[in-house]
């Protein structure tokens, strides 16, 4: 037998023996399993998480201020106490930063009602409170908008009929939501003047259908997170006691 035929036989043997029968997909079963308290916890995972959890909880439970009441974004029609606090804190904390950088003042603040993610409960205000009301990483931006764009912003508020938090802007409407009065820092809005509007980066980019921030005259990114503004504010004050006022109201007949 020569080598050629030996290789041929070996080839045949290996060819047939190695020829894998292809497997075919015959059946698929799909379901969802609920992760509930009926499942046991893996002890190793528990032990791993424990020190992190203890550290985070200790930090989060540190008391920063005291809230005299419970504030919810559903208490109030066109402006709410917690929403007014939201907008006013952004003004108070961001204006010094903006002024230092530009020499100018913020003229008004607008954020969105949906961005208030939790109530503030009566009692101790902790670091956790700031995380609850603002879990997202959004930052404060200041946008230079002409008075004409401010009018679009007001039209948006009239159509939304929601208590979107505002500061320094005043809007009064009649029963049918026709404008009765608008002002910024108690002055009429001038169409050609540039106003510096503080908001967050999410809304600036068209979030909640706020399309009026672009185009604009200028944009200032303060690199100041909304949550950090709250943490700094809570650390600064002893008590919080926001109220519903007349910044956005509907007149009764």
């Amino acid at each position: 037998m020569n080598y050629k035929s030996l290789f041929f036989i070996l080839f045949i043997v290996f060819f047939f023996s190695c020829k894998q029968e292809p497997q075919h997909l015959t059946r698929i079963e799909g379901k969802q399993i609920s992760i509930s308290d009926s499942l046991e916890s893996d002890l190793e995972i528990e032990a791993f998480v424990k020190p992190y959890r203890e550290h985070v909880n200790k930090e989060l439970d540190s008391v920063l201020a005291y809230s005299v009441d419970t504030y919810s974004k559903s208490d109030g029609e066109l402006n709410t106490a917690i929403g007014n606090l939201f907008a006013d804190v952004i003004f108070e904390q961001a204006n010094p930063v903006f002024k230092q950088r530009t020499g100018k003042d913020i003229d008004m603040v607008l954020v969105n009602h949906g961005g208030i993610r939790s109530i503030i409960s009566k009692g101790n205000v902790t670091t956790r409170t700031a995380y609850e009301i603002m879990p997202f990483e959004n930052s404060i931006v200041v946008v230079g908008l002409k008075g004409s764009s401010i009018n679009q912003l007001i039209t948006y508020l009239l159509e939304a009929k929601r208590a979107h938090p505002i500061s320094k802007l005043k809007v009064v409407v009649d029963e049918d939501f026709n404008l009765v009065e608008t002002s910024i820092s108690n002055k009429p809005i001038e169409a050609s003047k540039t106003y510096y509007v503080a908001t967050n980066d999410y809304l600036y980019n068209g979030g909640d259908s706020m399309t009026f921030f672009q185009p604009n005259d200028s944009l200032f990114i303060l690199n100041y997170k909304i949550r950090n503004a709250f943490l700094d504010y809570f650390a600064k004050v002893d008590t919080i006691n926001p109220v519903i006022d007349d910044r956005f109201i509907k007149l009764k007949k």
């Binding site: 075919h24 059946r27 698929i28 969802q32």
Partner: peptide, 26 residues
């Protein structure tokens, strides 16, 4: 993380089993 999805795929060399296509049970 309140649910885990689970999909099982069954393979077989017996081609007869796929004669009527792959069956899906959900």
């Amino acid at each position: 993380g309140i649910n885990l999805g689970r999909i099982d795929f069954f393979f077989d060399i017996d081609k007869n089993k796929t004669v009527n296509g792959t069956s899906i049970i959900v």
